[in-house]
């Protein structure tokens, strides 16, 4: 998750008292994810320890600062690294400390290594978590803990998340994914003769809240057009369905891992074609 730069039209700077009430959009996602973290921790103790999450955050920020200074010539805004670190801290479960540092470092450094035509292709935390889940299954797992499993905490998080995404003009991405997931869950239940609620169950868990609000909406690693963004998350949901047929526990993370960069590359290819194509000649009016 690296959405410190939100792809929305520039706003006129607020003046007077509005200046103090107007929140820079870069800070909205970090504040939201921090609220989720603190709310979950203070009410249900979702973290194994503060230290592990702090380690992930600190690692992400330090790696971002160092690599940014070396390769971009400046210290990047820390919001992106902060969200990556906090996401790793929440989504990764391990009794050990070092996986949090390694995962956060992989996530941030991928932004500087796995680039094509100036853009990084993978959502950093998605890539970091997928790598450690795949390579180190004996020591790490994904988030399995819930925010108490009760309906109200779920409703509050979803409403708050929806409001923030609406403000950031990215609600259509999450909404499209949710609709696609539910429809495909019903289809899966029909095909597999499973209870429908069993197939819908994952989306009611906390892992999906982070996935839907922060990962698939990441401006840096999503395509530009609204239609394209919606098509991409539909593709994620479809690939996720096939991973679920294969009984992959982290189906949604793996689906985004594959679809995300492919979509980016396709968009770049299409953009390149548009640039190369000759400008249309004005037609002469026939007499």
């Amino acid at each position: 998750m690296s959405q410190q730069t939100i792809a929305i039209p520039p706003r006129q700077p607020a003046r007077g008292w509005k200046k103090w009430l107007s929140l820079d959009n870069r800070f909205v996602p970090p504040i939201f994810i921090t609220l989720i973290l603190l709310g979950g921790q203070l009410t249900y103790g979702i973290l194994e320890s503060y230290e592990k999450t702090l380690l992930a955050i600190a690692t992400a920020i330090v790696v971002e600062m160092v690599l940014g200074k070396i390769f971009l010539g400046k210290f990047p805004h820390p919001a992106s690294a902060y969200i990556t670190g906090i996401s790793v801290g929440i989504l990764l479960r391990s009794p050990a400390y070092w996986p949090f540092a390694v995962c956060a470092a992989i996530a941030i450094s991928s932004k500087y290594v796995l680039r094509y035509k100036g853009r990084h292709l993978w959502n950093p935390s998605n890539l970091g978590i997928c790598i450690v889940l795949f390579l180190l299954p004996a020591s790490v797992a994904g988030l399995s803990i819930q925010w108490g499993n009760n309906l109200w905490s779920l409703v509050v998080i979803w409403m708050l998340g929806a409001a923030i995404l609406w403000r950031l003009h990215r609600l259509h991405i999450s909404a499209t994914y949710v609709v696609a997931f539910i429809l495909l869950a019903i289809l899966r239940a029909h095909i597999l003769h499973q209870p429908v609620l069993a197939e819908i169950s994952p989306i009611t868990g906390p892992e999906y809240q982070l996935f839907i609000f922060f990962m698939i909406t990441d401006p840096k690693t999503t395509v530009r057009s609204k239609l394209g963004q919606s098509l991409v998350v539909i593709a994620v949901a479809v690939l996720e369905m096939f991973f679920r047929f294969d009984q992959s526990v982290y189906a949604e993370l793996y689906a985004l891992f594959w679809i995300g960069p492919i979509a980016m590359l396709i968009e770049m290819w299409l953009n390149a074609r548009r640039v190369k194509a000759p400008a249309p000649q004005p037609q002469m009016a026939r007499p």
């Binding site: 399995s144 108490g148 209870p195 069993a198 169950s201 009611t204 868990g205 892992e207």
Partner: peptide, 21 residues
């Protein structure tokens, strides 16, 4: 897979045995 799928869900789903695969 099925265990993790349901166990991470909302209480109204996991609390009812008929929702378990």
């Amino acid at each position: 897979y099925d265990f993790a799928k349901v166990a991470g869900g909302n209480s109204t789903i996991i609390g009812d045995a008929k929702n378990w695969p």
